[in-house]
Structure formats: structure tokens, C-alpha cells
Design a protein around this nucleic acid. Structure first.
Lengths: 241, 241
DNA sequence: CGTCACGTTGAGGAAGGTCAAGTTGGGTGG
DNA sequence: CCACCCAACTTGACCTTCCTCAACGTGACG
């Protein structure tokens, strides 16, 4: 199935794949699915039998408190297996929602089990994907625990830009970000009001502009410096596993 | 090597291991190491060639900002492979420090590579361990983003108690917690002063007591309720992988 | 018996939340 | 085509949470 090529390209950035491995990935069965903006891809507590590769769109993982207050824990961009970890934890401990209408390739866990039994090197690359998710969580924890509004927002924007650029969905320091300021706040641990004020500060410092859910970064160096952003944790470089 | 039995028992709680698998784990090579309280087990950015299984003691993973402010992202208890994820990401993006003097079994990545090539089911169990780390990070993110001092502290204490109890290192709602309030604050995103005040509130509400780095929980139900703590994400129950 | 790390408490300030009002712009129905 | 509506953005005023700074208490240890 050709749609998985987006994932083949992503894995190839980490390590060279053998022709056999590429063929095995292409032979993975999977169904296409579409989720409308604002709808849940997976609900909290749901038992899943397949993992979803995001082909297009943008979505986010979240946990929530009893009163409904929500905290996003990661934003996913095309090329991400949004719930690959469900391959080893069948019951999801969080929900996943589509920020914009998203298309997925749903790969049955049984097929992943076969693949990982036959291809240990591919298994390590899949494992790596879930480990990078954890590294992203750790960066968010550092930001939430120790950085103030503008720095935290700057860090999130840096991360998203670098990931979208790697996925060839952003360039020239511009990107689409189909999230409301309320949702952005739910990712940063802020209210919508405070998100707006942090954004305003970044705008006033001429670091970026935000209009119609499109972001234009004016001064990458200064933005990354404010955020203390270092993309190393995203593992976007070649690194044999 | 008998020391790895602590890990065999932990994996067995998730899923039954075959005699072959147990034998393979026991045949893993590894060197014993000891790290004094306050010393780093692994430094940020270090390239590692082995993963360390914590046999005794308590340690924590942290990231830091330029000015030295530190944020812990996980506390590790005996039975945890503190840097198993380094098996697929050789260069650690964070540091690990020993809160109390800790003993480790250092297993070479080459041995883990052989093991995972030969035993796909064991591989999924190891993978699960790293996925649970990510689930812990997500719970911390929820707490940091949306819960106030007392609730956040209560949640951390609930998590640590449940994990220590599972490791048979705590019982009767008592546990040793060899961390200073300053370090506890670095785990919660607080200053030492605010940690002290949150602790005081929990004490005044008669939820727990803290003395000489020993915690006694007086009202588990109320503590877990305040924290909105649900241990499901720790995957302490049997769940075939 | 002094020192030092850790815990505790108070006072004042800054960051972020809450509430409320107004603006903007796209979509819809008359 | 226009009037209306609604969601999202923006801003102000006030309040709570948490931080900063500072002082003091306490116990282990040389």
C-alpha cells in the first residue's frame, strides 16, 4: 500500500532500510480512515486492535480531569503513528482528537506482530518512534515545570515547525497550525486568555506572526534562544539502530 | 545472574514468561555498579553502551535549563530499567541521578540486541516498559498543567506508593522516600518553599504524615481522590502482549 | 560547640487564572 | 445582498497561586 511510504521515508531518516524491510512495510495491510476536525480518533480507555498512521491533518493526545479540564500531551503531525504504543498497551490511557480533518492508515496489531517477529531491526525502529514520543513528553515537562508563558509557547512552536519541516509540510519559517488559542492553551497548561497574552508578547518582540491559523516565524534564532530549544531529542538525524 | 530476577518478576506481572525466556534473561551478561547518593548515574548527552537495571535505591531522570533549574521527569524504583530507552536512542537526552545510594546491573546493548532478535515476545515486554515510562510522563503532564500544589503532590505520592508496593518495598501505607523537599519540588515544578506548603496542607487535612523521609499515608481514599489518581496507566495487572 | 544542610514560616511581588465586555470575520438564512 | 449569529480573538480589572527573599529552627556531624 503506497500510503505507507510516508512512514518508510520517516524511518529512512533514522537508519537505512533494506529492500526486504521496505517491501515488508509496503505489504502491511491497513484500512484508510478519515476523522473530521474536532472528532475523536480514539477515546480514552478504548481497546484498540490496530495502530493509526497519520497521513494528513493534525491531531493531539490528551488526558483530562473529572471536571473536563484537558491537557494535551503531544501534537502529532503526518508521518506519526499516533497510537503505535497501543501495540504493546492495548487499552489507551488517553484520547486522541483531530484538530483538522485527518486521514489515517489503520494497521492491525496482528500484522505488526508478524512484522516485528520477522524483522528485529524494523522492530527497533518502531520502538524508537515510541521512545521519541517519550522524549517529547520530557521536553514538555521541562517547559511546563520551569518556563514561563512566552518561552513555553516559543518552545512548542519551535518543536512543531521542526517536525512539520521534516515532514515537508512547512518551509521558509511558515507553517499552518489549525489549532485555536484555546487548544494551544490546553497543550501549554494555560488558559486561552493567557495563551493570547503570551502570543502577543512574542508578536511584540517581532519573533513571529500569527494570522488565520498560519504562523510565520520572523526570527528563528531569537525564538529558539528564548525557548532554549534544541531539536536533538527529536532524533531527526541518521542514527543506526 | 540472579540479580536480574527482580526484573523477571516485574515482567511476569505483565505476562507469563516461558522457561526459555526466563533462561535467556538469566543468561544476560551484566556488570554490577553502585552509585552514591547525589551522584549522576548517566549525564545528559552521554552515549551509553549498556542499559542499567536498578536493583536497589531510588533515582530520578531530569532535564535542566541553561541557568541550572532542574525538572525531574520520572522517579525510578528498584526493578526499573532506568535507561532502557537508550537501547534504541544511544545518546541520552537527559540525566539520571541517584537520590539514595543505588545498585545497578548494567546490561550491554549488544546482549539486548541478541535477546530481542531471538525472542519477539520478550521484546514486546521490554518495549512495554518504555511505553509505561511515556504513560507516566503523560500523567505528570496532566498534573503539571492542570492540578494545583496539594493535588499534584498527592498524585506523585500515590504513584510512588503504588510502584513501591508493587516492587514489595512498601506496605501498610508507609514508604521511605529518600528525597529532600527541594528535590520533590524539582519533580513537581515547584520551589522547595511551595513544596513545603503543599505538604503542610496534606498534613493538616490528615491525609498523610512525612517525617525523616518516611511517608505514612493516613487516608488513601481521600488522597487518591484529591489527586484524581487511577493506577491503570502503570499497567501493574496481567495483560498478555 | 560550631557548621551546615534541611525544614519551616512570614511578607511582599510576579505570573497566571477568572470574569466580563467588546471586536472580528466567516457562515447562514431571509 | 444583507442581517444576523456564533466561534474565536482581544483586552481590561481583579483575584489566586506560586515565587522570591529572608529569617529562624533543628538535628547530624566533625
Amino acid at each position: 500500500m503506497a500510503t505507507i511510504d510516508i512512514f518508510v521515508r520517516k524511518l529512512s531518516r533514522h537508519d537505512d532500510l533494506s529492500p526486504d524491510e521496505i517491501a515488508a512495510l509496503r505489504e502491511l495491510p491497513g484500512e484508510l480512515a478519515e476523522v473530521r476536525a474536532g472528532q475523536d480518533v480514539v477515546r480514552t480507555g478504548q481497546w484498540v486492535e490496530h495502530s493509526s498512521l497519520l497521513l494528513s491533518g493534525l491531531c493531539g493526545r490528551y488526558s483530562a480531569l473529572r471536571d473536563g479540564r484537558r491537557q494535551y500531551t503531544e501534537i502529532n503531525v503526518p508521518g506519526d503513528f499516533v497510537d503505535l504504543h497501543s501495540f504493546v498497551i492495548k487499552q489507551l490511557d488517553h484520547g486522541i482528537v483531530a484538530f483538522s480533518t485527518s486521514r489515517f492508515l489503520q494497521v492491525p496489531h496482528a500484522a505488526l506482530a508478524q512484522l516485528t517477529t520477522a524483522y528485529p531491526h524494523l522492530t527497533r525502529l518502531l520502538w524508537l518512534e515510541t521512545v521519541v514520543d517519550a522524549a517529547i513528553h520530557r521536553q514538555w515537562l521541562l517547559a511546563m515545570g520551569r518556563q514561563d508563558g512566552p518561552a513555553r509557547l516559543a518552545r512548542l512552536i519551535c518543536e512543531l515547525y521542526v517536525r512539520l519541516e521534516a515532514a515537508e509540510l512547512a518551509w521558509n519559517l511558515r507553517m499552518d497550525l489549525p489549532m485555536t488559542q484555546h487548544e494551544l492553551g490546553e497543550a501549554l497548561g494555560f488558559t486561552a486568555v493567557h495563551t493570547n497574552r503570551s502570543l502577543r508578547i512574542l508578536r511584540e518582540r517581532q519573533l513571529l506572526d500569527w494570522r488565520d491559523q498560519q504562523i510565520e516565524i520572523h526570527d528563528w534564532r531569537a525564538l529558539a534562544d528564548l525557548a532554549e530549544f534544541d531539536p536533538g531529542y527529536l532524533r531527526l538525524t541518521k542514527e543506526p539502530v
